[in-house]
Simulated assay, not measured.
Amino acid sequence: MNPIRVLLADDQRLVRAGFATMLSVEDDMQVVGQATDGQEAVNFAATHDVDVVLMDVQMPVLDGIRATERITSAGRGKVIILTTFERDDYLFDAIRCGASGFLLKNAEPEDLVAAVRAVAGGHALLAPQVTVRVIEQFARQLGGHQPAGHRDPGPEQQQKQALLASLTQREKEVLVCLAEGLSNAELAGKLYLAEATVKSHVSSLLAKIQVRDRVQAVVFAYESGLIRPGEG
């Protein structure tokens, strides 16, 4: 099996070196490149095979958000945003730009390794202490805190509501649990389901609401009105 090819993008050399050291001891991972700014990351991903990019937000030349958008839209790799939570507002757009998740810079080595494996395997990284906080604030910026009766839904909102209506009650319950940041195992325990059944429900609802991963499913939960910021 080919190793997971990882690109590190951070303007701090010590941060890159630390992550490289953590990943280098894993047999199934290979750090294939290091970028000191977003443009270098975009250029490297365009000319090399990259599976996962660990992307800082605040970098010179091109910030991590715009770099994420260019890399994911071109299908050149999946992106994990690195954050210290100093500036949450930089992270909101990352979700819409295709980020597959978030990771704290002071994460434990095992958490970093697990995150890279999860994203490389097609899963989104939904750490409750990061993603739910970011998405809830993102939803507030969209005006999701307003009562549904006070909004005049446009075509896009109407489409989301129609997709939401296509879900079964159980799939809606699963979607609410995803918005709470629950893992499959935690979700199975809460809903008294087998974990294999949970995976089936998750796959089904992702297809029905036409999103690519769990992060985008959580965004959908807020944008469709299934969940209001502050709930869950």
Rank of each mutant, 00 (worst) to 15 (best):
M1T: 12
M1G: 13
M1A: 15
N2L: 14
N2P: 15
P3W: 06
P3Q: 09
D11W: 07
D11E: 11
Q12L: 15
R13I: 14
L14H: 15
V15N: 04
R16C: 11
A17H: 15
A17I: 15
G18P: 08
F19P: 04
A20K: 14
T21D: 13
T21W: 13
D27V: 15
M29A: 10
M29L: 11
M29S: 05
Q30T: 14
A35G: 10
T36V: 15
G38T: 11
A41D: 02
N43Y: 08
N43E: 14
A45Q: 02
A45G: 01
H48T: 11
H48C: 13
V50L: 01
V50W: 00
V53D: 09
L54S: 05
L54D: 05
D56A: 11
P60M: 03
D63N: 14
A67V: 07
T68S: 02
T68N: 06
I71E: 00
T72R: 02
S73P: 09
G75Q: 10
V79M: 10
L82S: 05
L82C: 06
L82K: 03
T83W: 01
T84Y: 06
F85E: 05
E86L: 12
E86S: 14
R87L: 13
D88A: 09
D88S: 12
L91S: 01
F92K: 07
A94R: 00
A94Q: 01
A94S: 01
A94L: 02
R96G: 15
A99R: 01
G101F: 06
F102W: 03
L103D: 01
N106D: 13
A107Y: 00
E108Q: 06
P109I: 00
E110G: 06
D111W: 03
D111R: 09
A115Y: 02
R117A: 09
V119R: 00
A120F: 14
A120W: 07
G121D: 07
H123T: 13
A124M: 06
A127Q: 12
Q129T: 13
V130W: 05
V132N: 01
V132A: 06
V132R: 07
I135N: 03
I135C: 03
E136L: 03
F138E: 03
A139D: 00
R140P: 04
H145I: 09
H145V: 12
Q146C: 14
Q146W: 15
Q146A: 14
P147N: 08
A148S: 10
A148P: 02
A148L: 08
A148C: 03
R151P: 05
R151W: 12
P153G: 05
P153E: 08
G154D: 14
P155Q: 11
E156V: 11
S166I: 10
L167G: 05
R170V: 11
R170Q: 09
R170D: 09
R170G: 06
E171D: 01
G181W: 06
L182A: 01
A185V: 13
L193Y: 04
T197N: 12
V198C: 00
S200Y: 10
S200N: 09
S200A: 15
L205A: 03
L206E: 05
L206V: 01
A207L: 06
K208Q: 11
Q210T: 11
Q210H: 09
Q210F: 07
R212W: 08
R212S: 13
D213W: 00
R214H: 09
Q216R: 08
Q216H: 10
Q216W: 04
V219T: 15
F220S: 02
E223S: 10
S224R: 00
G225L: 04
L226A: 02
I227L: 12
G230W: 02
E231W: 09
G232E: 15
